[in-house]
């Protein structure tokens, strides 16, 4: 499996933090200090301008997830941590790549970009810059297919994720129902 793919070793933490200077350094520093590996990291403002959202994909083989979450929770500016099971969440990521293709192969790559519902961002004489957004696995597939043409640059944003939506009529009663059933 491609190093970008979803597998059992990875877990997604969606972390709401205070939007203050140095908070990312505190989070990243904690990971470094305690020997946890960050697989990918995405940071952006949240809906509330006092808060930012950090989406961290962690390698749970480097440490038990429970310990990572608890240590993270001890950081004063961390307001809320949501663990997202990849199987129970919707993940998206963006890929931006410059491919070394001249006029003769250009059409093939453009076709692939079309199949992956991506966009051509820039065209040069011997190069093409493309953008694809989607689930990380889809981006992995795209990468595998385009790699033979030769990447000059490849950047991925790191994933963001939200929980899968419940399709039951009254989602908030779910826990309650489970308890009753039990």
């Amino acid at each position: 499996m491609s190093p970008y793919g979803v597998d059992q070793r990875h877990h997604i933490l969606s972390v709401l933090v205070e939007n203050k200077a140095g908070v990312l350094a505190r989070v990243a520093g904690l990971f470094a200090r305690r020997g946890y590996n960050i697989f990918s990291l995405a940071v952006a403002p949240s809906g509330d301008d006092r808060l930012s959202r950090i989406t961290i994909v962690v390698d749970v083989e480097s440490a038990p997830l429970e310990q990572i979450v608890k240590q993270l929770d001890k950081l004063i500016p961390v307001v809320q941590i949501t663990e997202l099971d990849p199987a129970e969440s919707r993940e998206r990521e963006l890929l931006l790549a410059t491919v070394a293709v001249g006029p003769e192969e250009r059409g093939q790559v453009i076709q692939l970009v079309g199949v992956f519902e991506g966009k051509i961002v820039d065209v040069g004489t011997e190069r093409l810059t493309v953008m694809v957004a989607g689930a990380p696995g889809k981006l992995d597939d795209f990468e595998d297919l385009v790699r033979p043409y030769g990447f000059v640059e490849l950047q991925r944003t790191g994933r963001v994720a939200l929980p899968r939506l419940d399709r039951q009529a009254y989602p908030h009663d779910r826990t309650h129902q489970t308890e009753k059933a039990g």
């Binding site: 038990p64 429970e66 310990q67 608890k70 240590q71």
Partner: peptide, 8 residues
């Protein structure tokens, strides 16, 4: 008082 000590 520090839950991070549990199961560490």
């Amino acid at each position: 008082i520090d839950p991070a000590e549990h199961h560490k």
